[in-house]
Measured scan of single mutants.
Amino acid sequence: MALNTPQITPTKKITVRAIGEELPRGDYQRCPQCDMLFSLPEINSHQSAYCPRCQAKIRDGRDWSLTRLAAMAFTMLLLMPFAWGEPLLHIWLLGIRIDANVMQGIWQMTKQGDAITGSMVFFCVIGAPLILVTSIAYLWFGNRLGMNLRPVLLMLERLKEWVMLDIYLVGIGVASIKVQDYAHIQAGVGLFSFVALVILTTVTLSHLNVEELWERFYPQRPATRRDEKLRVCLGCHFTGYPDQRGRCPRCHIPLRLRRRHSLQKCWAALLASIVLLLPANLLPISIIYLNGGRQEDTILSGIMSLASSNIAVAGIVFIASILVPFTKVIVMFTLLLSIHFKCQQGLRTRILLLRMVTWIGRWSMLDLFVISLTMSLINRDQILAFTMGPAAFYFGAAVILTILAVEWLDSRLLWDAHESGNARFDD
């Protein structure tokens, strides 16, 4: 018995066209964080690309023209004298008006014999932002004059995390709450300039795509075929072959399989920071003279006294001054041990922890910024005066060393310790 099946006739004509040209192939790229070699397709503007294995951002879609970056830099340069030299806060102490600005706080630190601690604050609040705007201006002028731009481009990517104007702005709020127990506070004209400078700096850093600047100024022929001998440069993120001198053909720094002496430098910085954190938390970090009496505060006791007036601000200072430094030390110690013992479990967790400490590390400088600003506000000789204690130097040095330890660690070593050939990683 035959089955009668109805015929289905399409209502619209289906047209099949042959592909007349070869589909576009992607360029081969190595991930600078996990060293995976993959094919990167062509990316349009405002599109980002991520590593298929570790999800690290390979290409950032946010990109401004150099002219727009230069305009932002010149605007920031105009704001800087007002943000640093004009009063941020006014207080009335014992019937006398006192003005506080950024430069005055750094000068008070240096004047009291601790120039190293003052230079830490100076670099993060004044030096690094000033280098940022002058570097962008150098790129703008240098591109037109045919100057060598490689050193500036190499420095810009590392400079971003040292620009800490946003953290200093939080420190202004913390210092205001600490001082309000002794005097009446009012915002100064410099505060508005400083807030504007923070906003412009944040926007500029978020749109400063150094890798795209490398592509514009020093374009290189990408690798179009897969080759395990391809290496990625950690300076400019170019994937290719080393030249005859073993250097990256684009930025001219040595092109090595792994960062040289990464573990040794990381261990040295980490152990030194552990040693410095002990006096930083045991010795007094601030000293207040009130009517001839002397009151010393460690980091913890200062947080407890701050909690009596504002528990939320005390929580912020606790996280930045105690929780973050010790968390960074514990995480980095764990990561280094996992590399030495070739741990194969929990790779995803370790990668996330490394990215976390990379982002939060700079916030530990908050305590030094609060001390710097408070020193310029309260300084009335023996009637009422505020000065920093010996722990300030140890704390600042420990924070900087932990930042350097994270920067010096080559994250690809975590993958080397893991089993080879993993296309995915999980716990």
Rank of each mutant, 00 (worst) to 15 (best):
H252R: 04
L213I: 06
F82K: 07
R158C: 13
R150Q: 02
A280E: 04
C233V: 00
R17V: 13
L234T: 07
D63M: 15
C34K: 00
E211H: 14
R144T: 13
L3T: 13
R260E: 05
A196M: 14
L23G: 11
R259Y: 06
H418C: 06
V317Q: 00
T349P: 13
I43Y: 14
N148F: 03
I96A: 08
F393S: 05
I403V: 12
R350D: 13
S338N: 13
T202H: 15
L40E: 05
V370G: 01
C251H: 00
V275M: 11
A100Y: 02
Y218P: 03
N209V: 04
E228R: 05
R245Y: 10
E161Q: 15
V121L: 10
G188C: 05
L336Q: 10
L373T: 04
V195M: 09
Y50H: 15
F238P: 00
I319M: 11
L159S: 01
L159M: 02
S45R: 13
M147G: 04
L413G: 05
T358N: 14
M375Q: 14
V125I: 05
V331K: 12
R225A: 12
G235N: 04
L230M: 10
V203H: 05
S135I: 01
P87V: 06
E419R: 10
H418Y: 11
A320N: 02
P242A: 07
L40T: 09
V317F: 13
H207K: 06
P390T: 07
Q344Y: 12
D381C: 02
K57W: 06
I351C: 11
D27W: 14
L3F: 11
V406C: 12
L197S: 04
H237G: 08
V232P: 05
G127K: 01
V313R: 00
P10A: 11
F123L: 02
S364H: 02
V195E: 03
T5L: 11
S286I: 03
R294M: 02
T134I: 12
S301E: 07
I360W: 10
V133D: 00
A280I: 02
F326W: 15
I400N: 05
K160C: 07
R150G: 06
L69G: 08
Q112E: 04
L323E: 01
P81N: 11
G61N: 15
E212F: 14
V317C: 02
L200D: 07
R62D: 11
L255Q: 04
L282Q: 08
F82H: 13
A187K: 15
H252F: 02
T387Q: 04
R256S: 07
V189G: 09
F318I: 03
G173F: 10
D297W: 03
P284S: 09
A307M: 08
R216W: 10
V313K: 04
W84N: 15
G146E: 02
W64D: 10
L276P: 01
I131Q: 00
V170S: 15
P87T: 11
L306R: 01
